[in-house]
């Protein structure tokens, strides 16, 4: 689990985009950790959200993830 979390954070901070779909995050993690299952990656992402490291970004119809404080204006105002 810790490995997956690390891989997620690595991807999140290296990625050119400040917000990304779950699938893209999943692919990046599986590149580093080929055995990581989708469900585990989701669990790890949820933990990161609960810790306050990752945040959800939602348009209402689809949801993306982002690193807290990076690139996304927390309040679009």
């Amino acid at each position: 689990m810790e490995d997956i979390k690390k891989a997620i954070l690595e991807f999140a901070s290296d990625s050119k985009k400040s917000k990304f779909y779950f699938k893209d995050m999943e692919k990046a993690v599986q590149k580093l950790l080929p055995d990581a299952k989708s469900r585990e990656i989701k669990k790890a992402a949820t933990e990161l959200v609960n810790e306050g490291t990752l945040i959800y970004f939602s348009t209402g119809s689809s949801t993306m993830y982002g690193l807290k404080g990076r690139g996304i204006t927390e309040d679009p105002e």
Binding site: V49, N50, I55, Y56, F57, S58, T59, G60, T63, G66, I72, T73, E74, D75, P76, E77
Partner: peptide, 20 residues
């Protein structure tokens, strides 16, 4: 209306839709 943004409630990834 513009939508999106970080609105939500703690621990949930859905249920709240940001509108400004």
């Amino acid at each position: 209306w513009k939508h999106g943004g970080i609105v939500g409630v703690f621990g949930y990834g859905g249920g709240v839709i940001g509108r400004y």
